[in-house]
Design a protein around this nucleic acid. Structure first.
Lengths: 293, 293
DNA sequence: CGGCGGTTTTCAGATATCTGACCAATATTC
DNA sequence: GAATATTGGTCAGATATCTGAAAACCGCCG
């Protein structure tokens, strides 16, 4: 039983149901439960599911992966992996080393994946709003979307002054550990929140909220005020403020500002928060007028 | 199989005016050569190939696509598409509308695809170099990579002054129509160039080089000088300068600056070019020292 | 040199997908 | 509003993949 559940640090392949090399993973074959009972994860076209699961394994592991590594991560039989890997390599979604025995993500994945941003009619408006915001406030501004228990950064405009970019398009962070995420979580009803939060609230820093009740009460406060704040909960020495863009119900998108955590006063945080709330409200009006939902 | 070869062309919804609904696309049927002889495009795990080909279709079409649309684009039987689409939707790589009948790219594609940037050890160095460059020059700077006949933007640092971002991470442009691409193409030997260029050099603007001989002679000049320039060849009223980052042979990566085309003199273009060449050379030395190839 | 631990690759039977034809649902037309 | 055209969904036989086991391969060390 390798599955310790607890953070275990590594977390690389933690999604895989087994760490046992030769464990029988195909579940359905266990006892005579015939065809997919719960039909939860075993449904659909097997090779297609496996292909994208493989891609996700590559997305989560930034080094070269061998066939055996992938067998550990995914639980797929080595022989099946062999065919899948060659197929994905031939179409350019993964690359192999010269020997053809180690693999990593290919550039096709980047090209295709980032097309998500073009396909979304919200983005042009969001970009423009981010630039207005950045020009008003001067700090780095983000636009992000809730995806299950995580937020995904969709667009960034960096501060004119501080050089470092806080995050990257496409990166995800646990929602409960970020101002963006807390703002979005505050939109959810109580049972929705319960359904979406992970069993264990992982801590990104010492200050990350890991207690569900503490989170709930803060979310209620955020909902009331219209924006969320955070100091050092996602990253040390970083303060963030975020507000939902209320063009959907419940809201899925939010905007934030990231500021150097030590040099910014509480009053400044609140000032930025209410400004942010106004810009987000403006943006959502634009979106609603444009018929975007 | 790669139908027209040409940049996937137009064709959003209007793709098939001919009602070739049931056209045989499986191609391989040349002459009685039984099972895949050349094994060109029909090899590998069929469902996996189709899954990613579907994703690419979504990447190239930014509207909602129906089952029939996809049938036109890919040539896959509708019944096969049905299973694939539900599978991809269930794993979050595509999304469907409420009716479950129109589809578009899902956020998982963005999350996973952008991991390409994390997996690449070049990127931290490239980002730092871009920031140095932008701070020295003031214009928007790009870092891009050659992928077949196209360049792919990997990272951008925007101008402090002009607000508009020129391109986006993950976007591709024809190499022959950009300064970045011309710099990278100038690294190739003559037969490599012939192999990589498309049959027809598509024009992005009136000034795009579409004559192969004109391109060849300019590439020779670029190779000699160490950087490439361009005015209005990729986009009207835009001037670009680019230099290869010579840490591989042939070089695959390059840096560029984009400037407002009208307000920049030729002398300024050349000044930026030689500065760019120096920064690219510095970066490549860093990379080589770090053992990155 | 040859055995050894580990990994990749191959192979034939078991299993799952693919597909063309067929039905159902929805949009379009008059 | 009914007929019609188009699209979406389902099914059983044909076909292809999947898989466990066994074989080739590789680097390593004695």
């Amino acid at each position: 039983m390798a599955d310790t559940g607890i953070s275990s640090g590594s977390a690389v392949g933690s999604a895989a149901p087994t760490n046992d090399v030769d464990a029988d993973v195909s579940g359905s074959s266990s006892i005579g439960t015939g065809p997919a009972v719960g039909a939860d994860s075993a449904a659909g076209v097997k090779s297609a599911r496996r292909a994208v699961e493989l891609l996700e394994a590559f997305g989560a592991n930034h080094e070269w992966l061998s066939l055996t590594d992938l067998h550990h991560h995914t639980g797929f039989p080595r022989s099946s992996l062999h065919g899948l890997l060659r197929t994905l390599r031939d179409v350019g979604w993964i690359e192999s080393d010269d020997a053809g025995t180690r693999f990593r993500l290919g550039v096709k994945a980047l090209i295709c994946g980032t097309a998500y941003l073009d396909r979304d009619p919200v983005m042009p408006y969001a970009t423009e709003a981010l630039e207005r915001l950045r020009d008003q406030i001067g700090y780095t501004c983000h636009f992000a979307r809730l995806n299950g228990p995580d937020i995904v950064y969709l667009q960034t405009r960096e501060s004119r002054t501080s050089a470092h970019l806080v995050s990257r398009v496409g990166r995800t962070l646990p929602a409960h550990a970020t101002a963006l995420g807390k703002a979005l979580l505050s939109e959810l009803a109580d049972d929705e929140l319960t359904a979406v939060l992970p069993k264990q609230l992982t801590a990104l820093t010492e200050l990350t909220i890991t207690d569900r009740e503490a989170l709930r009460s803060e979310l209620a406060f955020i909902r009331e005020r219209g924006y969320s704040t955070e100091r050092g909960q996602s990253s040390p020495n970083l303060a963030c403020v975020a507000a939902v863009v209320p063009y959907r119900i419940p809201g899925t998108d939010a905007m934030s500002c990231s500021m150097p955590g030590e040099r910014v006063t509480d009053a400044e945080l609140l000032r930025v928060g209410s400004l942010l709330r106004d810009v987000a409200e403006d943006l959502s009006q634009q979106l609603r007028r444009a018929g975007i939902r």
